[in-house]
């Protein structure tokens, strides 16, 4: 007799560019993640010990750059998340103007290579808003990633059963109150792993801002290379450092995903 019961959301929103996420079925010791991570760490430790020149010399130039890379990444992901909330809601809005604004923004951003966007935004922001290097870099990244984050939020909001909004509306809440108090808190929980993946992608893509101005991790490596002409070793070391970070973070995201699943 008309049993149309909404099933609880069991959605796993993956908007990722393919960081190695360990699969449950793989044995922990020899899965691809463990092999890659071990290899990176071992090389990163052994090479500077065995051949301090050049590897140790390269490595010691990195810490300041690593700090900048994380500053850019963390600031940009926070801003991008805020943009993403509004874009995600906007894409689902029934008001034509807001809906168009959000969807057109996403279309435009997705159609332009990130490097080109960063060049354009960076120079546009610098020229018209007279922003400093750091805020300009962060804002460029945030505007790009805000579009992807908007997609994550849109999918997350759509994954919440319609009955939640209806229950809230039936109690006299406004749409805005229902979104803020009922829908978004549930959305955030299911998209946390997706946000983690965006963070990892952003960490990698932040290397692009080194092209325009900031002395981030990648810029440090390029600086070293341009002075010593030892491109191979400089880029090898910087690759290993990025790899260790992203693999570690992807593990963290997978762990978070497990935890959230258990809680369901």
């Amino acid at each position: 007799m008309g049993l149309e019961i909404d099933r609880e959301p069991r959605v796993n929103i993956q908007v990722t560019d393919g960081v190695l996420l360990p699969e449950k079925s793989q044995p922990t010791l020899f899965n691809s993640w463990a092999i890659a991570f071990t290899l990176a760490v071992v090389l990163l430790v052994v090479l500077p010990i065995v051949r301090p020149d050049p590897y140790w010399n390269i490595l010691v130039t990195f810490p300041a750059g690593i700090l900048v890379t994380f500053q850019v990444t963390v600031s940009a992901i926070i801003l991008a998340t805020l943009i993403g909330i509004f874009v995600g809601i906007g894409q689902l809005s029934k008001r034509t103007f807001i809906n168009r604004l959000a969807t057109v923004y996403v279309e435009i951003i997705r159609g332009i290579p990130l490097l080109v966007q960063i060049f354009f935004l960076y120079f546009a922001l610098g020229r018209f808003l007279r922003l400093q290097d750091f805020p300009a870099a962060v804002l460029s990244m945030a505007i790009c990633y805000g579009a992807y984050m908007g997609e994550v939020f849109r999918a997350g909001i759509q994954a919440i059963p319609r009955g939640q909004m209806e229950a809230a509306l039936s109690q006299g809440l406004s749409r805005g109150q229902a979104l803020r108090l009922i829908i978004l808190p549930q959305t955030v929980k299911i998209i946390l792993p997706a946000i983690g993946n965006e963070f990892i992608a952003l960490l990698k893509d932040s290397s692009l801002v080194s092209v325009v101005a900031l002395t981030d991790l990648f810029r440090q490596a390029r600086n070293y290379a341009s002075v010593t002409f030892n491109y191979f070793d400089a880029y090898l070391m910087v690759s290993l450092v990025y790899l260790v970070f992203t693999l570690f973070l992807s593990r963290l995201v997978a762990f978070m995903e497990e935890k959230l699943k258990q809680h369901d």
């Binding site: 909404d6 109690q171 006299g172 109150q177």
Partner: peptide
Amino acid sequence: REQIGMVFQAFHLYPHLRVLDNITLAPRVV
């Protein structure tokens, strides 16, 4: 709507809130 209560087949309790907050949310907010 605040004068009309609705009870659904699939309950639609707010899963991220404890029982107390499920009950008190609308009175406090609305």
